[in-house]
Computed example of a mutant assay.
Amino acid sequence: MAGQTPPTMQDVQSAPAEVALSIDRVGVKHLMLPLVVRDRAQGVQHTVARVDLGVDLPAAFKGTHMSRFVEALENWKEELDYHSFKALLTDIRQRLSARKAYVVFRFPYFLKQASPKSGSPGWMSYECTLTGEMAGETMVFTLAVDVPAMTVCPCSLAISDQGAHSQRAMVRVMARFTGFLWLEDLIEIAEASASSPVYTLLKREDEKHVTESAFAKPTFVEDVVRGAAQRLDRHPQVNWYRVEVESFESIHAHSAFASIEKTK
């Protein structure tokens, strides 16, 4: 009725928790967001990100305020760089009165690829992840990319009179770094470490070249992960990395894998 004071809405999230345990991360997942990332050849490219946002929650509180995560994205300017990522982490931590904030962006990154002999163009898509963590004023950023590649088994090639088994592998490169790190650098490191890159479009002369060059460079998963680690060791901006290689074996009912992690 007119003149009456509306009832005060109860803040249930700030009430005491029935079970007084701290939560490491609580938040929202799979928000879709337009994204602009830097492209070494074109300057920038537009893509779409799947975003996870989270904070820590002290034992005293029943819940967090989920709507505030979405509100934080209202200030997002679409372009992904150090300053925008830091601003988003800072905003989330302040809005949620949290000690720690977490942000994960997952997005496809596209490169125009030319076939090795015919030069036929095709778009390759690489799944990328940028993770940011902020505790106080300390921030940690990790850039990761999944790169498909081809491996030819050295053992199979050595013991067979004709041929050898070959298969697609996935090389996942994760890196922490100083300054700016191109996604293209990580993609090139992964592809150079395998028997051969894989391609979107291949003509007959391309298939011949890819097959022959791959069989001239047989690699175990151990070879691929060591080669990638060696190249990351030499990269001047990378100060931590983890490389994981999974080979989807064509004649075995299992995958083979290897990983190396190092702080430089």
Rank of each mutant, 00 (worst) to 15 (best):
V48W: 13
A114R: 09
S156T: 04
P7K: 15
L181R: 08
M170L: 08
V198Y: 11
V48H: 14
E133W: 01
A72E: 03
Y126C: 03
E184S: 13
A158K: 14
I260P: 00
E79D: 12
V36K: 00
E261F: 14
D223I: 01
V221N: 01
K77D: 15
E78N: 04
K217N: 11
F105C: 09
Q42E: 05
C155M: 04
L31K: 07
Y199N: 04
Q167H: 11
H209T: 02
A15E: 13
D11F: 11
K100Q: 12
D39W: 02
L202R: 03
S255M: 05
E18M: 15
V26R: 09
S160N: 08
P197L: 01
D11H: 12
A192V: 14
A192P: 01
F107L: 06
V103R: 00
V145D: 00
S22I: 10
V55C: 08
E137L: 06
L57Y: 01
M124H: 09
R68E: 02
K100I: 11
T151C: 12
L33A: 05
F257C: 04
M170P: 04
D146R: 13
Q230N: 09
A258S: 10
E205T: 12
E222C: 09
D206V: 06
G43E: 05
S14Y: 11
P116L: 10
T263Q: 14
